[in-house]
Design a protein around this nucleic acid. Structure first.
Lengths: 149, 149
DNA sequence: AACAATTATATTGTGTACAATTTAAATGAA
DNA sequence: TTCATTTAAATTGTACACAATATAATTGTT
């Protein structure tokens, strides 16, 4: 009945565990991403573009849970680095199409080994990771549903 | 055998789920914390100080997984807001003691209801949250152990 | 058609994160 | 004791996050 009590400690805050854990995993990614000159959020954008070649800022925002205030400058940096192209759609001038470049696509080959490397460095089994991921995805869904109201 | 494959999708990246989920929960906290004029990381600092009244920058860094580059400016803002005091230790001039003020301590009464409110808004049971928290804390431990090597 | 409302990005401003470096104090070995 | 090493914070610089606002294009209503 922790949540009935007067005070919930830091360590009992699920939100803190998630926050600390995601940053701790960022740290594991860093040496691999440094190799590719990528930040973690940039890597996430590429994951989307490796799947579908092309996307809009709006769609990237929905998939990653980021807004244009975060994405616009990040995508400009990625464009400057030669990883993506930004072009206004001809049909709807409000929309900016983000397309992956040859160079951006080429990084995929160097990046595919990262998930397995990280899995090994934590010493966890693939099944464990998949199970936890499903739990977190369900939690994310609950939280997003809650924030709609 | 996802991790043996050529390519792991965004949604199968546990790290992305954790990252998205922790930011989604931040969003649930926001209206409550706005009321107290706190950011989420500042709330975390107060959680520590509500437990032990006093801490050092180093200790806060270890507990929260943040470094002085993040904490120093944040603690200065909290000092400016009247929530904490920053004072060099007399025994060891390198150490900065962070002490909670009357005002900072007073916020505790307004904040204790937050965890329960959030629990209710997600519609999850306390047992579920505790279970997930234990899973994530174990994962965090594994990740931190991995990064030592 | 005219114009209000909506939509997709961009911009501005504040607050983290964190690597890398700096500074000053304390510790330890010769 | 003396000086190299270590340690705790602070500083610098870059990159997110995100609220709030602005801008321009499209859609919906009358």
């Amino acid at each position: 009945m922790k949540y009935e009590d007067e005070f919930v400690k830091l360590e009992d805050h699920l939100c803190f565990s998630l926050y600390a854990c995601s940053r701790a995993i960022f740290r594991l990614y860093r040496p691999f991403l440094d190799e590719l000159n990528l930040t973690y959020p940039q890597y996430l954008v590429l994951l989307v573009l490796w799947e579908r070649k092309q996307s809009t800022v709006k769609e990237l925002g929905e998939l990653l849970g980021l807004d244009s205030g975060t994405l616009t400058p990040m995508l400009k940096r990625m464009e400057a680095a030669g990883l993506v192209e930004r072009k206004r759609s001809a049909e709807d001038e409000r929309v900016v199409m983000i397309t992956i470049t040859e160079e951006g696509n080429h990084l995929k080959e160097k990046a595919v080994c990262i998930p397995r490397s990280l899995l090994e460095s934590t010493g966890m089994t693939e099944e464990e990771v998949i199970t936890i991921n499903n739990v977190i995805k369900k939690l994310l869904h609950n939280v997003n549903t809650a924030s709609m109201k």
